[in-house]
Design a binder for these strands. Structure first.
Lengths: 163, 163
DNA sequence: TATTGTTATACTCTATAACTATA
DNA sequence: TATAGTTATAGAGTATAACAATA
């Protein structure tokens, strides 16, 4: 059983820590997003909500939250920000539920946002092939959504319920 | 040039957003770390500093920060936390530089921490093969350290200087 | 002049408890 | 009773400016 000669990664080699690489890659992607969206002064979370509203016009805040798979409580803040900026509007469905939709201003802005998002994506296309990027996302999915794991994941604990 | 029939991912499909997958995978890994290290009441950043001190006994705060590739200012806080808990100690090199080392208590704790870290790592071994994990980390490296990109990265902007 | 250590501040996202009002 | 919306708070890391003291 001749082991490969290269030494296995040890705890002393931070460059092989999964969490560290994930954190830094996340920050790099967020930073790039910020650059591309600087002219619009939009954070990733805000853009996500705009896309959710665009794809679910008339939906309630709770429905949007479910669509994004995000706690309601965090959606509230972003919705108010976007409403204050005149990008979305809420109309009463009944006395407690709101129907949320893009305003005219919001609708007019979306194409430019999608273009910025496309640029943002392209900035990472140069770093890896399309196949590599697909595999990357598939592997990331396995991590945070263990149902996606290829093998039976022993690590699947009782934390699958998010609602 | 017959294109593949599957439709390309659109902005409306959040599950293909790189940043979103990165963020969620990061949080999943951090959550798992927290579980394994709950008995020690240690955050990832604290464990990282302990490993840095273990591998650079007598180093200064600035040297540790450079070794970890982290701003000095964030190291300060963690160092004080670890010192308050009696895991590290500082002795004066000169009137402004400190020599940092593990205390006896810290040294005795490290094996248990490495064991917890090993368990933490193993929790993700079940989700992907060793080769897949190596590729994952390689791809993540390309993202946050564009020097690592396989192709000439047009996205390499002037943000490589961290110090 | 440059470096060490420090404080304070601000920023990203995520998550939970607790509350009001309404279906 | 369950749901919609809300507020407040806490937590993970990252990053910058500004300052005092010292090499």
């Amino acid at each position: 059983m001749a082991k490969p000669t290269k030494t296995p990664p040890s705890d002393a080699q931070l460059e092989y820590w999964l969490g560290r690489n994930l954190r830094r890659a996340t920050n790099a992607v967020v930073a790039d997003f910020m650059e591309e969206f600087a002219q619009f002064d939009l954070r990733p979370a805000q853009f996500t909500v705009l896309v959710a509203v665009e794809n679910n016009p008339g939906a309630s805040g709770a429905e949007l939250s479910e669509w994004m798979d995000v706690p309601r409580t965090n959606t509230v803040v972003v919705l108010r920000e976007l409403e204050d900026r005149g990008l979305i509007e809420r109309s009463a469905t009944d006395q407690r539920t709101q129907a949320i939709a893009l305003t005219r201003k919001g609708k007019e802005l979306m194409p430019r946002l999608h273009a910025a998002h496309a640029r943002h994506r392209r900035n990472f296309d140069a770093m890896m092939s399309r196949e590599e990027k697909e595999l990357l996302i598939a592997l990331l999915s396995r991590i945070w959504r263990p149902d996606r794991a290829a093998r039976p994941a022993a690590a699947q604990k009782a934390k699958r319920t998010r609602s």
